[in-house]
Design a protein around this nucleic acid. Structure first.
Lengths: 347, 347
DNA sequence: CTGAAAGCGCTAACAA
DNA sequence: TTGTTAGCGCTTTCAG
């Protein structure tokens, strides 16, 4: 058990050598030439005393803390943050780094976010991950540029910084593809009303897929509403009340799909018999627990967190030049998760 | 904007004073006697140079890092972790501390969890928060005792450590109380099958409340199943198929309540008309988005995180002796969140 | 093969 | 009222 009070000097005394030697063997310094016997003596002494290095002192001396700062938006409000943190934590741990986390609000002022970054900087983190809770364009605090950093789940409004984002288009194409593949030809889209990349890109992919299938994407029904359960409910109600109501429905996210389930049920439409639906986000609680289970598209939060961390560490260790890969953002896939809400349309 | 490269010495030179003076004014050292003019010179010099203290060096010298370690179980799988982290982060930030987070698994071996604590110890965190994802008894890594620490959302199996847990009993009493108050006299409980404190305490509170209301708690219907949606569905189906089916249903958690909603619907029972239900956990996604909105009991995760952090810092700063408050655990309230799933029974 | 000593950036006696 | 200086625990150059 590691004992806070004992230092390298104590180990040196116990082993009857100098601190230099202790440092050399404990850190496996390449150029050090120490006899096997001495190495053994040192190691057992360290073991017996329960020596653990003081990382602060190490850091002060080497100018490397082995700490990564993670500023994350709205940690408590979405499950997405947890996945990014987990991906980052595991990637970091695998390479001997640890995470210093600061929560911020998506709506916080630039100054307040700059102060958060500043706190991390004072602690001399080796690099910073800046994670947002949904894919959009963010204005980054200027002091972020002070240190290697990567943006997770967003693109920068100005300037350039390495970023990693989800493949909205590919995900949407997979979703619509699942419907097409099942044989649907009347397909509707329940879109979000916010002006974020996902809104535009998913719509574009929706239309493209229909066009490519020989259907008229431009004429396909689209209803928009706030991307919450009640919005999905309202939009679905409108969509499903049409004469030529679709047999397949692509929803902007799982929450809207949840609303669509309710609307369908109230309209006497069964899922998937009368209506096939596919969502986006793969929110466990909703998607897996629905009846029938919701086929949806998963967002790669864990993967983005891990990717960002790995590349950040590469940059810190000089294995990569972040500046070179600053633009464009790296895009990570959004895999389709098949459950039971898509079947062939009734004929 | 804080500049990593400039140190206290540069400020001293720029201001034409010694480093001592700089240190004194920048840290507002009480006993220091520095003229107002000098103070000004120092402050503006620091400002202009963009000086930010190197917290590592400070920490090495003062033996205080201002960092708190947080080992948290299963960050990505429950929304609870996010709330604990948020509560801890805000409390910490308010007192000038930051959080170093390590994720661990609830099922990880003692050694692996001990290594996680060890990593925090090497970084010389001033104290450690150990958070579990559900209320139970945990075996803590021995090295945790090395430093001030508090356990969040669990009680220790052996030894003593300050802990903070939710008021299971009070929460359950509030839940059953809501049903009683609405006039229900046939009330059932859908319980969890895991042997955790919540299972026992909520059941006990359920029976007690009925007894106190002059109903026979011992005879009240209880069905148990795994605490997931499908478990709730199965248990509810059994419960609601009885001749004397209850008009009020208390569910172990919101997920089980979600299953109960489905079972009720399939049995042609409307909520809340034919059946009033109350859950536990207040999982936003479920509880608020259900139709009707689920009346439930909120778990004080944010509060536990904040309470633990505040008391940990008190101990670190010598304002409290943690040992004195080690036993018994502090209990934080679980407030009832009223929505629309409880009404008076039909008569 | 091993050790002495300088110094990372800062704080806090102590001196002036 | 201000400055000198000795470390905090470690790594690393340089000399044996």
């Amino acid at each position: 058990m590691s004992n806070r009070n004992i230092g390298i000097k104590d180990v040196a005394v116990a082993a009857g050598v100098s601190v230099t030697t202790v440092s050399h063997v404990l850190n496996d310094v390449a150029y050090a030439r120490v006899s096997p016997e001495t190495r053994d003596k040192v190691r057992t002494a360290a073991e017996e005393l329960g020596y653990g290095p003081n990382r602060l002192a190490q850091a002060l001396r080497t100018q490397r803390t082995g700490m990564l700062g993670l500023v994350s938006e709205d940690i408590a409000t979405t499950p997405h943050a947890g996945r990014i943190i987990l991906g980052a934590d595991e990637a970091a741990k695998a390479r001997g780094y640890n995470l210093m986390i600061i929560n911020t609000s998506g709506s916080a002022s630039l100054e307040s976010r700059q102060a958060d970054v500043g706190a991390l900087l004072e602690r001399r983190v080796d690099g910073i991950l800046y994670a947002t809770m949904y894919h959009r364009a963010v204005e980054l605090p200027a002091n972020l540029a002070t240190v290697p950093s990567v943006l997770v789940d967003s693109v920068p409004t100005g300037g350039n910084i390495t970023a990693v984002i989800p493949d909205e288009e590919g995900g949407a194409r997979a979703a619509v593809g699942a419907l097409l593949e099942a044989g649907h030809i009347r397909i509707g889209f329940l879109n979000n009303t916010d002006d974020v990349p996902a809104t535009r890109q998913r719509l574009q992919a929706f239309r493209d897929m229909l066009d490519e299938a020989g259907l008229d994407g431009g004429a396909a029904p689209v209803e928009s509403a706030v991307s919450e359960v009640h919005g999905g409910y309202e939009a679905a109600w409108r969509m499903l009340s049409r004469e030529d109501r679709p047999t397949g429905l692509f929803c902007y996210n799982d929450r809207m799909a949840m609303g669509a389930y309710r609307a369908a049920s109230e309209l006497g439409l069964s899922i998937p018999g009368d209506l096939s639906v596919v969502g986006f986000d793969d929110q466990e609680l909703i998607a897996a627990n629905f009846n029938p289970g919701l086929t949806t598209v998963a967002l790669p939060h864990y993967e983005m967190g891990a990717w960002a961390t790995d590349h950040l560490i590469d940059a810190i260790e000089g294995k990569t030049d972040l500046a070179l890969m600053a633009l464009p953002p790296t895009i990570l896939g959004c895999p389709l998760v098949r459950r039971d809400s898509v079947v062939a349309p009734r004929r």
